[in-house]
Protein backbone atom coordinates (compact mmCIF):
# COMPACT_ATOMS: atom_id res chain seq x y z
CA UNK A 1 0.00 0.00 0.00
CA UNK A 2 2.86 2.40 0.79
CA UNK A 3 4.19 2.11 -2.75
CA UNK A 4 0.82 3.00 -4.12
CA UNK A 5 0.36 5.91 -1.73
CA UNK A 6 3.81 7.19 -2.70
CA UNK A 7 2.97 6.91 -6.38
CA UNK A 8 -0.39 8.60 -5.90
CA UNK A 9 1.11 11.48 -3.90
CA UNK A 10 3.75 11.98 -6.58
CA UNK A 11 1.08 12.33 -9.24
CA UNK A 12 -0.58 15.15 -7.34
CA UNK A 13 2.74 16.73 -6.39
CA UNK A 14 4.15 16.65 -9.91
CA UNK A 15 1.07 18.32 -11.38
CA UNK A 16 1.67 21.24 -9.01
CA UNK A 17 5.43 21.23 -9.49
CA UNK A 18 5.47 21.17 -13.27
CA UNK A 19 2.68 23.70 -13.73
CA UNK A 20 4.29 25.94 -11.10
CA UNK A 21 7.55 25.73 -13.04
CA UNK A 22 5.80 26.52 -16.32
CA UNK A 23 4.10 29.58 -14.88
CA UNK A 24 7.34 30.75 -13.28
CA UNK A 25 8.81 31.07 -16.79
CA UNK A 26 6.37 33.94 -17.33
CA UNK A 27 7.47 36.09 -14.43
CA UNK A 28 8.48 39.40 -16.00
CA UNK A 29 6.77 38.65 -19.31
CA UNK A 30 3.04 39.04 -18.57
CA UNK A 31 0.67 40.98 -20.85
CA UNK A 32 0.34 43.72 -18.23
CA UNK A 33 2.04 44.20 -14.88
CA UNK A 34 -1.08 43.37 -12.87
CA UNK A 35 -1.51 40.01 -14.60
CA UNK A 36 2.21 39.27 -14.30
CA UNK A 37 1.76 39.51 -10.53
CA UNK A 38 -1.39 37.36 -10.63
CA UNK A 39 0.24 34.52 -12.60
CA UNK A 40 3.23 34.59 -10.29
CA UNK A 41 0.90 34.24 -7.32
CA UNK A 42 -0.60 31.12 -8.85
CA UNK A 43 2.87 29.78 -9.54
CA UNK A 44 3.85 30.40 -5.92
CA UNK A 45 0.75 28.58 -4.66
CA UNK A 46 1.57 25.60 -6.87
CA UNK A 47 5.20 25.42 -5.79
CA UNK A 48 4.01 25.59 -2.19
CA UNK A 49 1.63 22.69 -2.82
CA UNK A 50 4.38 20.73 -4.54
CA UNK A 51 6.68 21.28 -1.57
CA UNK A 52 4.10 20.01 0.92
CA UNK A 53 3.22 17.02 -1.21
CA UNK A 54 6.81 16.07 -1.99
CA UNK A 55 7.73 16.29 1.68
CA UNK A 56 4.90 13.90 2.38
CA UNK A 57 5.94 11.63 -0.47
CA UNK A 58 9.50 11.61 0.87
CA UNK A 59 8.25 10.60 4.30
CA UNK A 60 6.20 7.76 2.81
CA UNK A 61 9.13 6.52 0.78
CA UNK A 62 11.49 6.82 3.72
CA UNK A 63 14.65 6.34 1.64
CA UNK A 64 16.80 9.40 2.42
CA UNK A 65 15.31 11.36 -0.44
CA UNK A 66 13.92 14.70 0.68
CA UNK A 67 11.45 16.91 -1.20
CA UNK A 68 14.24 18.65 -3.13
CA UNK A 69 15.80 15.38 -4.24
CA UNK A 70 12.40 14.25 -5.45
CA UNK A 71 11.78 17.55 -7.19
CA UNK A 72 15.16 17.92 -8.87
CA UNK A 73 16.82 14.55 -9.18
CA UNK A 74 14.43 12.15 -10.81
CA UNK A 75 14.66 11.26 -14.50
CA UNK A 76 11.88 12.06 -16.98
CA UNK A 77 10.02 8.79 -16.66
CA UNK A 78 9.81 9.11 -12.90
CA UNK A 79 7.76 12.29 -13.10
CA UNK A 80 4.06 11.46 -12.87
CA UNK A 81 2.41 14.74 -13.82
CA UNK A 82 -0.38 14.83 -16.37
CA UNK A 83 0.48 15.72 -19.96
CA UNK A 84 -1.60 18.89 -19.72
CA UNK A 85 0.60 20.73 -17.23
CA UNK A 86 3.87 20.20 -19.12
CA UNK A 87 2.56 21.81 -22.31
CA UNK A 88 4.42 25.01 -23.16
CA UNK A 89 2.93 28.36 -22.17
CA UNK A 90 2.21 29.44 -25.73
CA UNK A 91 0.39 32.75 -25.91
CA UNK A 92 -1.51 34.16 -22.93
CA UNK A 93 -4.72 32.50 -24.13
CA UNK A 94 -3.06 29.12 -24.16
CA UNK A 95 -1.60 29.68 -20.68
CA UNK A 96 -5.07 30.59 -19.44
CA UNK A 97 -6.84 27.64 -21.10
CA UNK A 98 -4.30 25.20 -19.66
CA UNK A 99 -4.84 26.78 -16.27
CA UNK A 100 -8.61 26.75 -16.65
CA UNK A 101 -8.79 23.05 -17.54
CA UNK A 102 -6.43 22.21 -14.73
CA UNK A 103 -8.23 24.33 -12.12
CA UNK A 104 -11.60 22.92 -13.23
CA UNK A 105 -10.21 19.49 -12.37
CA UNK A 106 -8.33 20.51 -9.27
CA UNK A 107 -11.21 22.24 -7.46
CA UNK A 108 -13.53 19.21 -7.23
CA UNK A 109 -10.50 16.95 -6.80
CA UNK A 110 -9.18 18.77 -3.73
CA UNK A 111 -12.72 19.12 -2.42
CA UNK A 112 -13.05 15.34 -2.46
CA UNK A 113 -9.51 14.65 -1.30
CA UNK A 114 -10.14 16.88 1.73
CA UNK A 115 -12.20 14.02 3.21
CA UNK A 116 -9.53 11.41 2.55
CA UNK A 117 -8.91 8.93 5.35
CA UNK A 118 -5.24 9.79 4.96
CA UNK A 119 -4.92 12.76 7.30
CA UNK A 120 -1.86 14.27 5.64
CA UNK A 121 -3.41 14.26 2.20
CA UNK A 122 -6.66 15.61 3.62
CA UNK A 123 -4.85 18.47 5.32
CA UNK A 124 -2.86 19.40 2.21
CA UNK A 125 -6.04 19.21 0.13
CA UNK A 126 -7.91 21.52 2.48
CA UNK A 127 -5.21 24.16 2.29
CA UNK A 128 -4.76 23.78 -1.46
CA UNK A 129 -8.49 23.95 -2.08
CA UNK A 130 -8.64 27.56 -0.91
CA UNK A 131 -5.90 28.50 -3.35
CA UNK A 132 -7.43 26.49 -6.17
CA UNK A 133 -10.86 28.09 -5.82
CA UNK A 134 -9.24 31.43 -6.45
CA UNK A 135 -7.20 30.11 -9.37
CA UNK A 136 -10.36 28.74 -10.94
CA UNK A 137 -12.20 32.02 -10.50
CA UNK A 138 -9.30 33.88 -12.08
CA UNK A 139 -8.83 31.53 -15.03
CA UNK A 140 -12.60 31.21 -15.66
CA UNK A 141 -13.02 34.99 -15.77
CA UNK A 142 -10.18 35.24 -18.25
CA UNK A 143 -11.56 32.49 -20.51
CA UNK A 144 -14.84 34.42 -20.64
CA UNK A 145 -13.13 37.74 -21.35
CA UNK A 146 -10.97 36.30 -24.11
CA UNK A 147 -13.72 34.15 -25.60
CA UNK A 148 -16.20 37.00 -25.75
CA UNK A 149 -13.65 39.76 -26.34
CA UNK A 150 -12.47 40.56 -29.88
CA UNK A 151 -12.68 38.24 -32.86
CA UNK A 152 -8.91 37.79 -32.65
CA UNK A 153 -9.03 36.78 -29.00
CA UNK A 154 -11.98 34.47 -29.67
CA UNK A 155 -10.09 32.69 -32.43
CA UNK A 156 -6.88 32.41 -30.45
CA UNK A 157 -8.51 31.00 -27.35
CA UNK A 158 -10.73 28.62 -29.33
CA UNK A 159 -7.59 27.30 -30.99
CA UNK A 160 -5.99 26.75 -27.58
CA UNK A 161 -9.03 24.80 -26.41
CA UNK A 162 -8.92 22.67 -29.55
CA UNK A 163 -5.25 21.89 -28.94
CA UNK A 164 -5.29 21.42 -25.16
CA UNK A 165 -8.59 19.56 -24.80
CA UNK A 166 -6.96 16.35 -26.02
CA UNK A 167 -4.86 16.28 -22.84
CA UNK A 168 -7.68 16.70 -20.33
CA UNK A 169 -8.38 12.94 -20.04
CA UNK A 170 -4.92 12.42 -18.67
CA UNK A 171 -6.06 14.29 -15.55
CA UNK A 172 -8.65 11.55 -14.99
CA UNK A 173 -6.42 8.60 -15.83
CA UNK A 174 -7.12 5.79 -13.39
CA UNK A 175 -5.19 2.56 -12.83
CA UNK A 176 -4.57 0.03 -10.08
CA UNK A 177 -2.88 2.71 -7.97
CA UNK A 178 -6.01 4.81 -7.78
CA UNK A 179 -8.38 1.89 -7.52
CA UNK A 180 -6.61 0.39 -4.54
CA UNK A 181 -6.60 3.74 -2.74
CA UNK A 182 -10.21 4.44 -3.63
CA UNK A 183 -11.22 1.21 -1.96
CA UNK A 184 -9.48 2.42 1.21
CA UNK A 185 -11.18 5.81 0.99
CA UNK A 186 -7.77 7.42 0.68
CA UNK A 187 -8.33 8.59 -2.88
CA UNK A 188 -11.64 9.92 -4.18
CA UNK A 189 -13.21 8.29 -7.20
CA UNK A 190 -12.88 10.34 -10.38
CA UNK A 191 -16.49 9.73 -11.39
CA UNK A 192 -18.09 12.60 -9.48
CA UNK A 193 -15.06 14.82 -10.07
CA UNK A 194 -15.32 14.35 -13.80
CA UNK A 195 -18.99 15.28 -13.69
CA UNK A 196 -18.27 18.52 -11.88
CA UNK A 197 -15.37 19.21 -14.21
CA UNK A 198 -17.58 18.83 -17.25
CA UNK A 199 -20.32 20.98 -15.81
CA UNK A 200 -18.03 23.84 -14.96
CA UNK A 201 -16.07 23.71 -18.21
CA UNK A 202 -19.23 23.69 -20.31
CA UNK A 203 -20.85 26.51 -18.35
CA UNK A 204 -17.81 28.75 -18.70
CA UNK A 205 -17.29 27.94 -22.36
CA UNK A 206 -20.91 28.75 -23.06
CA UNK A 207 -20.63 32.13 -21.40
CA UNK A 208 -17.40 32.68 -23.30
CA UNK A 209 -19.13 31.80 -26.62
CA UNK A 210 -16.59 29.00 -27.07
CA UNK A 211 -17.05 25.30 -27.68
CA UNK A 212 -15.30 22.00 -27.20
CA UNK A 213 -13.68 20.54 -30.31
CA UNK A 214 -15.67 17.96 -32.30
CA UNK A 215 -12.67 15.69 -32.36
CA UNK A 216 -12.62 13.55 -29.23
CA UNK A 217 -9.17 12.11 -29.77
CA UNK A 218 -7.21 12.16 -26.56
CA UNK A 219 -3.86 11.30 -25.02
CA UNK A 220 -2.90 9.73 -21.75
CA UNK A 221 0.43 8.54 -20.39
CA UNK A 222 1.71 11.16 -17.95
CA UNK A 223 0.73 9.20 -14.86
CA UNK A 224 2.82 6.29 -16.13
CA UNK A 225 5.80 8.49 -16.93
CA UNK A 226 5.17 8.61 -20.68
CA UNK A 227 5.57 12.30 -21.46
CA UNK A 228 5.67 14.68 -24.39
CA UNK A 229 8.95 16.05 -25.74
CA UNK A 230 8.40 19.21 -23.74
CA UNK A 231 9.02 17.74 -20.31
CA UNK A 232 12.66 16.86 -20.98
CA UNK A 233 13.53 20.46 -21.79
CA UNK A 234 11.66 21.74 -18.78
CA UNK A 235 13.58 19.34 -16.54
CA UNK A 236 16.94 20.13 -18.11
CA UNK A 237 16.43 23.74 -17.09
CA UNK A 238 14.89 23.05 -13.70
CA UNK A 239 17.53 20.49 -12.70
CA UNK A 240 20.54 22.38 -14.02
CA UNK A 241 22.00 23.46 -10.69
CA UNK A 242 21.47 20.14 -8.94
CA UNK A 243 23.03 18.27 -11.84
CA UNK A 244 25.95 20.63 -12.40
CA UNK A 245 26.80 20.94 -8.70
CA UNK A 246 25.70 17.70 -7.05
CA UNK A 247 25.38 17.25 -3.30
CA UNK A 248 25.66 20.87 -2.22
CA UNK A 249 23.63 23.06 0.07
CA UNK A 250 22.03 26.16 -1.39
Amino acid sequence: MNNKLFEYTLRIADDSLILGQRLSELCGHGPILEEDIALTNISLDLIGQATNLLEYAASIENKQRDADKLAFLRVDKEYKNSLLVEQPNGDFGSTIVRQFLFDSFRRPFFEALASSTDESLAAIAKKSLKETKYHLKHSSEWVIRLGDGTSESHQRVQKSIDVLWRYHSDLFYEDEVDLALVSENIAPSFKEIKKEFNQHVLAVLEEATLKLPDNNWEFTGGRKGMHSEHLGHLLAEMQYMQRAYPNMEW
Binding site: I32, E34, E35, I37, A38, N41, K137, H138, E141, R145
Partner: peptide, 17 residues
Protein backbone atom coordinates in the same frame (compact mmCIF):
# COMPACT_ATOMS: atom_id res chain seq x y z
CA UNK B 1 -4.40 52.51 -7.83
CA UNK B 2 -4.13 49.99 -10.65
CA UNK B 3 -5.40 49.25 -14.14
CA UNK B 4 -8.16 46.79 -14.95
CA UNK B 5 -10.69 46.35 -17.72
CA UNK B 6 -13.63 45.58 -15.43
CA UNK B 7 -14.48 45.57 -11.74
CA UNK B 8 -13.95 41.84 -11.26
CA UNK B 9 -10.46 42.13 -12.62
CA UNK B 10 -9.87 45.25 -10.54
CA UNK B 11 -10.76 43.34 -7.36
CA UNK B 12 -8.58 40.38 -8.38
CA UNK B 13 -5.67 42.62 -9.25
CA UNK B 14 -6.05 44.59 -6.03
CA UNK B 15 -5.85 41.33 -4.12
CA UNK B 16 -2.61 40.33 -5.84
CA UNK B 17 -1.02 43.78 -5.90
Amino acid sequence: SLRASDYKMAVDNARDV
